[in-house]
Design a protein around this nucleic acid. Structure first.
Lengths: 198, 198, 198, 198
DNA sequence: CATGAATGAGTATTCATTCAT
DNA sequence: TATGAATGAATACTCATTCAT
């Protein structure tokens, strides 16, 4: 009895997710150049060939991952942007959320690390890198401007400040995700990147 | 006219430096796994074989580079440690110096980037990584403790704060060294990582 | 309503034929080494697994095809051998029939192409190749000898002449079967391979 | 002491020829799909990597070979075209030359076989196939027309006759090059493809 | 010493075959 | 029985290292 089309679709979808999630972790840990397909597939728990049933090459897999992460980020941040509170609270909310992601080594944390890697691996066309950073940066810029009006955020170009903040978050992710110890990051430190004391 | 031993030594030394400097840049840009010996030697402007007259393997070259950078760092910071001024001034001095290095994309800036890469590429035995970070971190810890006594530095574990500060410096290096635009980093932002407002 | 044994047999037989016929075309077009099971099964319009319900391996499928074609050829030619007419007429009959097969791209035409491929792909044990060529060659040899006695066929070793004739037929098949344009082959040209002018 | 540029060029030229010649034989024997790079390089007597220092892929190697053969053919035939003799003599000259090539299994003979393979392997863009056949076919067409005026060549479309003649030559090459026995091909048989008896 | 061509162990990718549904 | 997803052995290709010149 042949499998129905729906069953096949479902199986494929499931496997694709399994691969993507495993690959995000693995790439984040080892980088693009440092990732061996043989190791990656063992890590995911599938045969090497299986991987190629879903992605035509190592590079395509990597690219798809970045696309997926970008999408996730977009969705996560759009919700936050709508809330109607003062900038300082928003920043505290974001920082808290970021630290949680990092400490729990969620997929978002891995995505930060991957993002750093993208900056480094200049070879790959970084269309995704930039677009990837777009949503969070834009959103944060607006909050920074709001905060500067409200007097809670330090002076400086909103764009550069936003970049700076995200850089720090990304690095924190990098430092934690790849180390075995679980460093605690003090929420206050991260807040102070943007917020004035008191 | 056979060359004297000294001349030979000098020539060797010169070539070795040429290789090392080129390799620092290249490794910083491409990481260890992402660096191909063929590309690297072309980048330096020598034959592949030549490289192996000076270093017995890719890994040895990398290791030597890290040693060299560590040494440089040690020397730079030891001098600073002896100065007899208040912690806030020391921190401002360090921050200023770091930003200069980064903006001028000096070898030190590259060393920061390389250091991040070391953290990522967990494969390599990180004896050097840790020892490399040692001197600056230790020195900064002392300054932080001094600053906390003096009331100029924010509260928190000295070790973690030092780590945090260096993380940010490293990130700034990463963001600048590998990008074509020359972002200006505001000195004040970096100081605020450790120093209280006012 | 369970199917009767006969019905089952019939269904199996039908599917087996479907596979064999498709495979003859596909192998003729792409050769043994150039044929991918995945492509072949898509071409036939079945699942990959289905193929393995009928043939235990790619090689077995290929072998079965050769057997089948040999059989067909044998039958076709045995009838011709019995007819009681002069050699020239027989040759003209054969040539006409061959050209028809080729121009209509029948299964026999494909079998010619497959046969050429067999000669090329020296890897496979050629028990079948030789036995496959046997019947037509033997039959033609007899006709050639008859024709040489009758004065209608050119001089030369009967074996080699027969080989030569079949070679030409095979090539004509190759040239036509795999090209989109439909070249007309002049009957006279083929006859002249063996027959003297007038 | 570095090698001079000329030495390098020479070495590379030599090796490229070695590879190309070996590959022509091997591809002719085994076809494109049937050729394993590992086997081919062993057959040539070089490392696998060496091959990739000269050709970027299996396909490029194959393509380059076809180009090379086309060139050779062009040169060989252009000379013949200029001779001022009757068509029958020209055809006899060509046939004699072809049979010699085939019996001695020269590179030209292999090129015929490769050409057949090209026709078969329809996947590959056959720009070369057609251009490859061009020169000989054109030249022969002129001779055929001349011969038909002179009354020595059989009737029929010059283009199709030329194609037919080359088909037979190609087949003869195929039959001989890949078999161990050295079949003798009677010159007369080949001449009769085009020439009337007497 | 400097070079870059040659090498083969290692890595990415393909494909005949298996197997759960 | 039919299916196509999963597999890993086989294959194409890469790259650190060697070595003749």
């Amino acid at each position: 009895m042949p499998k129905t089309k729906e069953q096949c679709e479902e199986i494929r979808e499931k496997m694709k997710n399994k691969i993507t999630e495993g690959a995000i972790n693995y790439f984040a840990k080892n980088g693009y150049a440092g990732t061996r397909i043989s190791q990656l597939s063992k890590y995911i728990g599938i045969g090497q060939g299986t991987l190629y049933n879903y992605f035509s090459s190592k590079e395509e897999l990597f690219t798809e991952i970045l696309k997926k992460l970008e999408l996730q980020n977009k969705i996560g941040f759009e919700n936050l942007a709508k809330v109607q509170i003062d900038a300082a609270s928003k920043i505290k909310l974001i920082s808290k959320s970021m630290i949680e992601e990092i400490e729990n080594k969620t997929i978002t944390a891995y995505s930060f690390v991957l993002n750093i890697r993208m900056i480094e691996e200049g070879t790959m066309d970084n269309t995704f890198t930039t677009s990837y950073k777009d949503t969070p940066t834009k959103m944060l810029r607006d909050i920074i401007l709001q905060g500067q009006r409200e007097g809670s955020v330090i002076n400086g170009d909103d764009n550069e400040l936003a970049d700076y903040y995200w850089s720090v978050v990304h690095t924190l992710a990098l430092m934690n995700v790849n180390s075995k110890e679980n460093k605690t990051i003090e929420l206050n430190w991260l807040n102070r990147i943007l917020l004035k004391d008191r």
